[in-house]
Simulated scan of single mutants.
Amino acid sequence: MYVLDVSCAHELPITLGRDFAGVVEAEGEGVSEVEVGDERPFATGPGRNSS
């Protein structure tokens, strides 16, 4: 699981965390950590906005 560094201070109110999951549909040149079809979790820390 990959977790982003969120060691900086946050203003209130904040969202206390988010997690996501998905299936790898393609991989870029030089990528060796995942393969197409892999199921991968991902988590962000408090106060991060998704885009």
Results as ranks from 00 to 15, higher is better:
1 M>R: 08
1 M>S: 14
2 Y>I: 10
2 Y>D: 13
3 V>R: 14
3 V>H: 13
4 L>V: 01
4 L>N: 14
5 D>S: 07
5 D>L: 08
7 S>W: 04
8 C>L: 07
8 C>Q: 08
9 A>S: 14
9 A>D: 11
10 H>D: 14
12 L>G: 09
13 P>Y: 04
13 P>D: 02
13 P>R: 04
13 P>N: 06
14 I>M: 01
14 I>V: 03
14 I>Q: 01
16 L>F: 05
18 R>C: 10
21 A>H: 05
21 A>I: 01
22 G>P: 10
23 V>A: 07
23 V>P: 07
24 V>G: 05
25 E>R: 11
27 E>K: 15
28 G>Q: 02
28 G>C: 07
29 E>T: 05
29 E>R: 00
30 G>Y: 05
30 G>S: 05
30 G>V: 02
31 V>W: 08
31 V>E: 13
32 S>E: 15
32 S>R: 15
32 S>M: 11
32 S>T: 13
33 E>M: 12
35 E>M: 06
35 E>N: 12
36 V>H: 00
37 G>L: 04
38 D>N: 13
38 D>E: 09
39 E>L: 11
39 E>M: 11
41 P>C: 03
42 F>W: 08
43 A>Y: 00
45 G>D: 10
46 P>T: 11
46 P>H: 08
47 G>Q: 01
47 G>M: 01
48 R>P: 09
49 N>W: 09
50 S>D: 12
51 S>Q: 04
51 S>H: 03
